[in-house]
Amino acid sequence: MTTLTQAVRSSSTTGEKPARAKRVRLESRRALPAFYWMVWPAVIAFAAFHTVPVLVGIFFSFTNYAGYGEWNFVGFSNYLNLFKDDRVLAAYGFSFLFAIVATILTNVLSLAIALGLNAKIRARNFWRGVYFVPYVLAILVIGYVFQFFFSNSLPKILSGIPLFADNILTNPDWAWTAIVALAVWQACAFAIIIYLSGLQTIPAELYEAASLDGAKPWRQFTSITFPLISAFFTINVVLSLKGFLQVFDPIVALTNGGPGTSTESVTLLIFRGGFSGGEFAYQTANAVIFFVVITIVSLFQFRVLQRREADF
Rank of each mutant, 00 (worst) to 15 (best):
T177W: 05
Q301K: 01
F164W: 09
L182W: 09
N256V: 04
T255K: 14
G143S: 08
D213A: 07
A114D: 09
S197W: 12
F148K: 01
S110E: 01
F300W: 13
K120L: 11
L109T: 07
K156L: 14
D173H: 06
K120D: 09
V56E: 12
P250R: 08
P41F: 00
S298M: 01
G69E: 04
N171T: 01
N118F: 10
Q283M: 15
S95C: 05
A123P: 01
F98C: 02
K120P: 06
I296D: 00
K17W: 13
T295M: 12
F59S: 08
R128P: 05
L228K: 08
L117C: 07
A102K: 01
L154S: 00
T106F: 00
L268F: 13
F73N: 12
L241Y: 05
I270A: 01
R20W: 12
N125T: 10
I251Q: 04
I235R: 09
I296M: 06
W37L: 14
P203M: 00
L117V: 04
L254C: 03
G277W: 13
A281L: 10
A253R: 01
W127V: 06
A209T: 06
A119F: 07
L137C: 13
N256M: 03
A34G: 15
W37S: 10
S159I: 01
F232T: 02
T284L: 11
I270P: 11
N107G: 08
A99K: 07
L163R: 00
I121S: 14
V304Y: 11
